[in-house]
Computed example of a mutant assay.
Amino acid sequence: MLIAQVTDIHLGFEPDSPGEFNRQRLDRVLGELAAMQPRPDLLLATGDLIDRGDKASYERLREAFSGLPFPVHYALGNHDERATFREVFPEITFDGGFLQYVVEAGPLRLIVLDTLEEGRHGGAFCEARADWLRARLDEAPEARTLIVQHHPPVEVGIPWMNTDPAEPWVERLAACLRGRSNIIGIVCGHIHRAISTAWEGTIVATCPSTAPQVALDLRPIDPDCPDERNLIIADPPGYALHWFNGRELVTHWDTAEDHQVLARYDANLQGMIQHMLAERPGA
């Protein structure tokens, strides 16, 4: 099974500009995913779908995702606005006022969480959402389950983008997942970088953004002393591919750009490929 992920699209960063930079970057990624072989079984769009919560940007988002050859499942981030999203996507069902739902995807069960608290940059996960998640997990305690959300529940080392592990929502989420051996991973966005780490017995993987990326700078930051460090950089638009091989979830990250090719599978390299494959059991 192949799951594609895009995140932190930020349409509308340039208001009223249908040809904006972030839309061009998104279109490059979606074009690459749609033409990919094997084709993804589904696409996760994990929040910060637009930049300012406005209806026109959500309408452009809907247009951008229309006609894709696979279903799209949305999560909300801190730049999103629930009421406006619901207005433009009325077919998507909210549960308890939150965009949280289950996707039964063949060998995997996906649980999409809502970590948005409007007006707050960081994540949130209240007791009502925790009760909902526990109920969904208890429904299928043996099902291989992937958690999908915008905010990572881990400290990533980039000070101005970090999640503080002492934030109450982090422990609330951890308590829901602790001791459950069927959770195969948590995929997130928010950081605008490709990052992975272990947390609460599972892997957390964040997807690079289709919008510009966050600069990698692990130095402490002083909110009272601007130091001219790089914050946002125009690296190529990124995406993730999560491949489930029946045992593990394997995450690949890539960028939508013209890669410089140094070798191709031609007659000159056929012998090498044959030798490598012949080494494997059952060859």
Rank of each mutant, 00 (worst) to 15 (best):
L2T: 03
Q5Y: 03
I9L: 15
E14W: 12
F21P: 01
D27I: 00
R28L: 15
A34T: 11
A45Y: 00
A45I: 02
A45Q: 02
L49K: 01
G53L: 01
A56L: 14
Y58L: 13
E59H: 01
R62A: 15
F65I: 01
S66G: 07
E81V: 13
E87M: 07
I92V: 12
G106M: 02
P107G: 08
R109I: 12
E118P: 12
E118R: 11
G119L: 08
R120P: 10
A124L: 08
R129T: 09
R129Q: 14
P141C: 07
E142Q: 15
P152G: 07
P153K: 02
V154D: 06
G157K: 05
P159W: 05
T163Y: 02
P165W: 01
R172K: 12
R172L: 11
A175T: 13
C176H: 04
R178A: 15
G185P: 07
C188F: 04
H190M: 05
H190Q: 09
H192T: 06
A194K: 08
G201D: 10
G201C: 10
P208W: 00
L218G: 03
I221L: 14
L231T: 13
P237C: 02
P237I: 01
P237K: 00
Y239Q: 04
G246R: 02
R247L: 15
E248H: 15
V250T: 07
T255E: 15
N268M: 11
G271E: 14
L277P: 03
